[in-house]
Design a protein around this nucleic acid. Sequence first.
DNA 1: GCGACAG
DNA 2: ATCTTGTCGC
Length: 190
Amino acid sequence: MNDDFDGEIELVCGVDVSYQQEIAHCSAVIVKKKTLEAVEVARSRSIAKFPYIPGLFMLRESNPIMHALKLLKNPFQLLLIDGHGLLHPRRCGLACYIGIITNKPTIGVAKSLLCGSLQSDGFVKYNEEILGYAIKRDTKPRKTIYVSIGHKIGLPTAVKLVRALTKTGELIPEPLRVADITSKDHGNRE
DNA sequence: GCGACAG
DNA sequence: ATCTTGTCGC
C-alpha cells in the first residue's frame, strides 16, 4: 500500500478504549504533530456488546471508537489506533477497519503480536509477507510496539510518523499515550 | 488434536 | 483490558 494523502499533516488523532466491567470508556485525543501538544479530548461511554476475541477486535471496539471520533470538533489528517492493521491473520485488523470507515490515513500500533514473527531487521513477517515493523526501546520484548498499515499509507511512512509522534524516552506515540491515560480516567470532569 | 491468541 | 503488594532497578 502506498501513501494516499496530500498536504501537510498538522493534527493527529489517537484513540484508545478501557473497560469497567462491560462499560467501554473511549477517548479520542487530537495532538499537534509539530509540538505533540494535545489540543482536544473527546470521550464516549457505551456498553460493550461483543466479547474480546483475538482477530475480531473490531467487533468489540469499533462502535465506541466511532462514537468518540464523531464528537471531535477539530479536523485531523492522521489516525492512530491501538491495535494491528494489516498485521492480522486476515490482513484486516481494527486499524484497517476504522481506516476504511473514516477514510483517513490510519496506522495500527499494537503492544504485542497477534500473528507473524519478528525478523532480525525489525520487520514482522507473516505468511511470507512483510506486514509490520517493530519499534523497540529496550532489549526487553515487552518494551516494543508493532506498527502496521491501517489505511491510505505505506509502512515506511507509517514508521516515520510514529517515530516523529513519540517523545524522547517514551515508547508509545503521544496521541495514543494520552488517549490511553484519559480513557482510564473513569472520573467525570470537563 | 494442541497451542497461540491485538485489548 | 482488568484484578493487584511488594519489590527490583535506574
